[in-house]
């Protein structure tokens, strides 16, 4: 029964957080979009395309942040065999992959007007692309087993391997990029961000964070429901209804 005790506490906590995170996400999105699309000035170099930054950069931040979360959840799941941590890791990966996908697509849409090409093998783009492959591999591995626990545990090991490997990938891609510097491109990262740009950037980042919390709670609840259903099916499948009734009477 203790296996269900923690999820029950989670359900109560999640029930308290969910309305706030959902409401704040909507509110922050509206205000953030207003600042991002209307109330902020165009950049003197990049003109209106700078507005892509307000979704691109928060998505990149969230892609990394979710991976950090995934790694922590995986470590907890592996070390303490905490069932909720396993499920959390499983619930996080698709959200992280989505943020990474958003980052890549908006990056391409920003690169085309700024660099004249949809894709450059820029160090950052390349490492985000590899991060995306990591997420995809994680999701595929999670779902590759008939026993879901085996899937989450294997994926947890993969996530921790990624924690060691991803910084090395980042380092090697940076190195590789300095070796093969393509014909000079204007870097996207403005050295100093004007406060008028910082406001929409931070608002959108907070909105993305609220979205992450909201969707994570929904997905985690779904995972808990699935686990309960599986437990029910197992007891039914093993011809246990008689036992259930004995226990009930």
């Amino acid at each position: 029964m203790h296996r269900f005790a923690n999820p029950a506490r989670f359900q109560r906590l999640a029930g308290a957080i969910l309305p706030w995170s959902a409401g704040l996400t909507v509110l922050l999105s509206i205000v953030g979009l207003w600042f991002a699309l209307v109330a902020s000035p165009p950049d003197y170099q990049q003109s209106e395309t700078v507005r892509i930054m307000y979704v691109h950069v928060p998505a990149a931040w969230m892609a990394l942040f979710v991976y950090a979360n995934l790694a922590v959840a995986s470590a907890i799941g592996l070390v303490w065999k905490h069932p909720l941590a396993d499920l959390a890791a499983k619930a996080m990966a698709p959200i992280g992959a989505t943020f990474t996908g958003v980052c890549l697509i908006t990056g391409a849409l920003w690169g085309q007007p700024m660099w004249g090409t949809w894709w450059v093998w820029d160090a950052r783009l390349t490492s985000v692309l590899i991060l995306f492959f990591f997420y995809v591999g994680h999701i595929a591995l999670t779902n590759a087993f008939d026993d879901p626990t085996r899937g989450t545990r294997a994926a947890a090991v993969l996530a921790l391997v990624g924690v060691v490997n991803l910084p090395i990938v980042k380092f090697s891609v940076d190195w590789w990029n300095t070796l093969h510097q393509p014909a000079s491109i204007t870097r996207l990262d403005a050295p100093a961000i004007h406060p008028s740009m910082l406001t929409p950037l931070l608002l959108m980042a907070l909105a993305f964070f609220g979205y992450y919390v909201t969707v994570l709670i929904l997905r985690l609840r779904h995972e808990i429901v699935c686990r309960k259903l599986r437990a029910l099916r197992l007891t039914q499948g093993m011809g246990a209804p008689a036992m259930v009734e004995q226990g009930g009477s």
Binding site: V55, G101, V102, P113, R219
Partner: peptide
Amino acid sequence: GYAAFVWPSYAITAVLLIGLLVVSLWNL
């Protein structure tokens, strides 16, 4: 003059994020 890049990036972001939200809700 950059409408073809600014609006699609917001649209795709919205579609992906809302899509994931809807799928998650529906599954739940």
